[in-house]
Write a protein that binds this DNA or RNA. Structure first.
Lengths: 262, 262
DNA sequence: CTCCTCGCAAAGATCAGATTTATTCGCGTA
DNA sequence: TACGCGAATAAATCTGATCTTTGCGAGGAG
């Protein structure tokens, strides 16, 4: 009986629950909206691990059909944020099960209260792998990549002199992104966004001196030179110095700003 | 030719491509099946970047309903493997857009022809971050974690003496997994599976001497000691030696096995 | 002949309802 | 107390319809 005889399908309420919260979206973005909303809530701890939802609850909450909530939950499942079982519902997973390298998850955490903790994690991660990536880049960079790195250093010098921190940041990001791409390892290359976030976070949190340390710029230049000449050890050393300097400068400024800064 | 025009939905073959791999499951795994199948095909290059599919084609190919294929495509999209646009269809993305840290993607690549390349990538990655993780572990490991690492080293010694490579591998994995967890950084911890795969790949590819190098074991012990005593520099150095040794042993054995080994 | 606008159609996005299937939980029986 | 058995529940799947974009071509203006 796929055809209900007497019921003429009145289409009760076309816009039931989206009176004010959907002003600008308006387009076919429902799934993305639900996904973002659920992701943010889980990451923020609003839905702590162990919380159980039901699909019915989700689509009631967000006023969407089951297809939409289902697909959103599906993606959350793929990121390890939830698991769903029959007769139980959708359970928020322990943090250990999360795919912490998923760019979307990283963005959610950077958006929320976890921002500082996430930046610390990313920063530590970067400290670990970037020297190694520099060494690889020195062995594998193309001439174009080496040139682009040198050019980025040049930009950094100019913008530092002008005290234009935003432009400096942009050049810095180009430098690191190019270096990671030049490493020839797709996985290092994929971490470019991570490094970009760390650099951006440092600048926007004012954990960066108004006058960028000339030594730091010189070390960037050293990395670029080492990459061009194909000297892995030199590139790795200089990159390590860059990171050490960044950590120390950051710590100094954090202490100056206030010990109880949180 | 993903578009057979004249063939409507006749429900062609109930066992299209997974006749043997789903013997016990047999239930509620259609989406996972389609996802795996598509993922493998994309990763294997059977569906190269730029290929355009349609949802209709997908569910016709795998004999499932739109919901299922839709959700599978959704997850693929979340991993960056495909993008879908109206009026166009589902386009396989360039490799640069892939989330190469997604465990599922890593598994697909390890399953296919990319296995060696993927192992090389992972190996380089590991070489980069594991010394840094060891240094962090030396600062943050709990007594239990340090003890577990020491215990794993002890197991490694025993199994090496017995020339039981599988048991040796298991102990090795416990050692590294514990160390990464002890680093206190969730992102390093999340890479435990990656390291596990690298170690397993080395063993199963016979890139590991039948008699594990006693020096390597001693360096593991050194890491464990340094972690227990809280000596980051010592832990980092020893870990770096472990990795260097592994790379050299691997290269030596690969050359012995055959220079043209691919 | 070129360029721009408008409309059609293709394909995903969303919705709504039904059906299937696997679990869990409670209850009755041995 | 233990062991099944059945009912209820919630996800998984299927189905068919409708909505919304958007690529592309037809047709008109310059």
């Amino acid at each position: 009986m796929p055809n209900p005889p007497g019921a003429p399908s009145v289409t009760p309420s076309p816009t039931p629950s989206t009176p004010s919260t959907t002003p600008s979206t308006g387009a076919g973005r429902r799934r993305e909206d639900v996904l973002d909303a659920l992701g943010h809530r889980i990451v923020a701890g609003d839905l702590p691990p162990g919380t159980v939802l039901t699909l019915e609850g989700v689509d009631a909450t967000y006023g969407v059909s089951r297809s939409v909530s289902r697909e959103a939950v599906q993606v959350l499942g793929a990121m390890g944020l939830v698991t769903s079982r029959r007769r139980v519902g959708i359970t928020v997973s322990e943090r250990a099960a999360w795919n912490v390298f998923d760019p979307r998850l990283i963005r959610w955490r950077l958006d929320g209260a976890e921002r500082d903790a996430q930046l610390r994690s990313l920063s530590e991660l970067r400290a670990g792998f970037e020297p190694a990536a520099a060494a690889l880049a020195a062995q594998r960079a193309t001439a174009e990549q080496a040139a682009r790195m040198a050019s980025a250093v040049s930009d950094m010098t100019v913008h530092a002199r002008a005290r234009d921190l935003d432009a400096y940041l942009a050049a810095d990001q180009v430098f690191h992104t190019t270096m990671l791409a030049a490493s020839g390892n797709e996985m290092y290359a994929a971490l470019a966004d991570v490094v970009g976030e760390v650099l951006a976070g440092r600048t926007h949190h004012h954990l960066m001196p108004a006058d960028p340390n000339p030594d730091a710029i010189e070390w960037h230049a050293e990395v670029a030179r080492a990459v061009r000449r194909g000297e892995p050890a030199a590139a790795e050393d200089a990159m390590r110095r860059i990171i050490t300097e960044a950590q120390e400068a950051q710590q100094t400024l954090a202490e100056q700003a206030g010990p109880g800064d949180r």
